[in-house]
Simulated assay, not measured.
Amino acid sequence: MAATHAPDAPRDRARTAGDDDGAVIRFDHVHKAYDESAPARRGRDDRPATGAAVDDLSFSVRRGELLAVVGPSGCGKSTTLRMANRLVEPTSGRIFLDGEDVTQVDPVALRRRIGYVIQEVGLFPHRTVGQNVGTVPRLLGWDRARTTARTAELLGLVGLDPARYARRYPHQLSGGERQRVGVARALAGGPPVLLMDEPFGAVDPVGRRRLQNEFLRVHRELGTTVMLVTHDVDEAVRLADRVLVLSRGAHVEQLAGPLEVVARPASPAVADLVGGGRTTRLLGLGGLDRRDLWPLTAADADAPRVPLTADLGEVLAELVGAPAGRVVLTDGGRDAGAADATVLLTGLRRLVDHTPRDGAVA
Rank of each mutant, 00 (worst) to 15 (best):
P258Q: 05
P258E: 07
L259V: 15
L259M: 07
E260A: 15
E260F: 01
E260W: 00
E260D: 09
E260N: 12
E260P: 14
V261I: 15
V261Q: 13
V262N: 10
V262W: 06
V262Y: 01
A263S: 12
A263V: 14
A263C: 12
R264F: 05
R264V: 14
P265G: 08
P265C: 11
P265A: 06
A266V: 15
A266H: 12
A266L: 13
A266E: 12
S267P: 14
S267V: 14
P268W: 01
A269N: 06
A269V: 11
A269K: 04
V270F: 08
A271I: 15
L273D: 10
L273Q: 11
V274C: 10
V274S: 12
V274P: 13
G275V: 10
G276M: 06
G276H: 06
G277Q: 10
G277A: 12
G277C: 04
R278M: 15
R278E: 15
R278I: 15
R278Y: 08
T280I: 02
L282H: 03
L282C: 10
L283H: 02
L283D: 02
G284N: 02
G284Y: 01
L285D: 03
G286R: 05
G287I: 01
G287R: 04
L288C: 03
L288H: 02
D289N: 04
D289K: 08
D289R: 14
D289I: 00
D289S: 07
R290M: 03
R290Y: 00
R290G: 11
R290W: 00
R291H: 01
R291V: 06
R291I: 00
R291E: 05
D292R: 04
L293Y: 00
L293S: 06
W294A: 09
W294R: 13
W294K: 08
